[in-house]
Design a protein around this nucleic acid. Structure first.
Lengths: 107, 107
DNA sequence: AGTCTATTTTAGCTTATCCTAAATTAGATG
DNA sequence: CATCTAATTTAGGATAAGCTAAAATAGACT
């Protein structure tokens, strides 16, 4: 195994390294949200959020479902599985309920 | 828990997201190497490597030991523990022997 | 078709960061 | 002390990436 092989296997890690993208993932971790609903949670433009969604989509970390005019997003638990432990380490714990906590409504 | 708390807890992930730093970690995963020896494995300047070592050091991902003129580095297994699973996922397997494989000498 | 809403895409700016080259510090040795 | 080697630090340049603003696309509805 060469040093190159160690270096860059498609770099999902670099994608998860950005706070904004982790925030998006937290939002749609256990609920499906339309692009506009996701964007509404941030102080950046709709376009900027859409760009990040594209990155996450192409990395297979989220899925989209067309619903009329809307694009409904949710985390792809399958694709994110190998990285779940790290995200959990960063988010302290109980990752499955973070989205709820973010919205302020406790179960 | 607010959206901010989810975002940036000191961002070790961003540090590990860079290929060069992972290459360095691989090299000193199970052997102690001097800064110059580490630099010798790359096509970048000694100074550049030293800068990356500093980043890794301040993130508590590696340790230094002064030995005369030399600074001998090695991975801090303690500090890197929470991220070990992801690195393993990226490096396929048997992370403990990657450094050896990189040097071309199989056990 | 025309329009309205939802979303994506493009162009360009700005900030962050990895790198080089040169200057500086630290320790060993003559 | 002078000097040599090892390593760090600083200043500056180039590239990458997130953002804004505006243009383009997609679907629903009249």
């Amino acid at each position: 195994m060469g040093l190159e092989a160690v270096a860059a296997p498609m770099d999902t890690l670099a994608i998860l390294a950005k706070p904004r993208r982790r925030q998006i993932l937290a939002l749609i971790w256990d609920q499906e949200l339309a692009a506009g609903e996701i964007a509404g949670n941030f102080d950046i433009t709709f376009g900027a959020v859409s760009q990040q969604l594209k990155v996450l989509r192409e990395a297979d970390l989220i899925t989209v479902r067309k619903d009329g005019n809307h694009r409904r997003y949710r985390v792809n638990k399958q694709g994110i599985a190998p990285y779940r432990a790290v995200l959990e380490a960063m988010w302290t714990s109980t990752l499955d309920h973070i989205a709820a906590a973010v919205e302020g409504d406790e179960t």
